[in-house]
């Protein structure tokens, strides 16, 4: 199966298998032979699953969608690292050339109380949706589209907002944090909206509501270890967390709730 210039790898996989949220789960060992270095990590799992299914065995369940690093659906903790060993890369963009022949690869789900395992490597990340529902939006009147230049925004502010908005909500920050904290995710959305004029109207209530929801979802607290920033496939800066801390402190002082 080797492509042009590629070679084949024989690997040992140690994959987390879990029937459902209430199952205790266990590792299962697989041999992955003849894996092309040109394959992506998920293609390698596809090939494994083809073989497992044709042999009448249960496939390895994992999340995936766009496979071009933009949707935030793929996950996996590969040898202890969310999205694998490459920085700024999602699992779907990780390639098998990153591994050596004979390697043992441990594949685990994102582990957090707030991300219960649905099956094998698939976790329920709807806690993130509830944090966004709590305040990660702006309210605006409907009607005709607003003129593109009606609300001037400086280049620096727009860039800052865009850097935070690059978060794809994959949950690698939670997976990497020793406290399973969702601070980087929540702060990226708060910083994004705090940096632009459209976000100002609900700014005070937003910080309070989103942090309250984050806390109610059983995520841990931030201890500034920087693990989230290192694991983030979109390289969202930990600076966002300090912005959230500021926003929350101000919100606590000003909010009448």
């Amino acid at each position: 199966m080797a492509g042009a210039g590629g070679k084949n790898l024989n690997l040992k996989l140690k994959v987390w298998k879990q029937k459902g949220p209430n199952d205790s789960g266990h590792f299962l060992n697989y041999d992955a032979n003849g894996i092309s270095t040109d394959m992506s990590f998920l293609e390698m799992l596809d090939v494994m699953n083809e073989d497992l299914i044709s042999n009448g065995q249960e496939p390895i369940e994992f999340d995936h969608d766009c496979r071009e690093g933009i949707c935030g659906t793929c996950s996996l903790v590969i040898n202890g690292e969310p999205h694998g060993p490459d920085k700024g890369t999602t699992t779907c963009q990780l390639h098998m050339r990153r591994f050596k022949d004979g390697d043992t690869i441990a594949i685990e789900p994102f582990r957090a109380k707030a991300f219960p395992v649905i099956r094998d490597l698939i976790v329920d990340r709807s806690a993130f949706d509830r944090i966004i529902e709590a305040g990660g939006y702006i309210s605006t009147n409907t009607g005709n589209a607003v003129d593109a230049n009606a609300m001037p925004i400086g280049k620096a502010e727009a860039d800052e907002a865009f850097n935070s908005a690059a978060c794809i909500g994959c949950g690698a920050c939670v997976a990497a944090c020793k406290n399973a904290s969702a601070s980087l995710f929540t702060s990226a959305k708060l910083s994004h909206l705090a940096a632009i004029p459209q976000g100002q109207a609900e700014r005070i209530s937003r910080a309070n509501s989103m942090v309250a929801q984050m806390d109610s979802e059983a995520f841990g607290a931030c201890t500034n270890t920087g693990a989230c920033e290192a694991a983030c496939p979109k390289e969202i800066s930990i600076e966002n967390i300090a912005v959230m801390n500021r926003e929350f402190a101000i919100s606590s002082l000003k909010s009448r709730k």
Partner: peptide
């Protein structure tokens, strides 16, 4: 917040 620990500790850039 993390009742089940990871089996492997990250050793690389992360």
């Amino acid at each position: 917040a993390r009742p089940k620990k990871y089996a492997v500790t990250p050793a690389g850039e992360k």
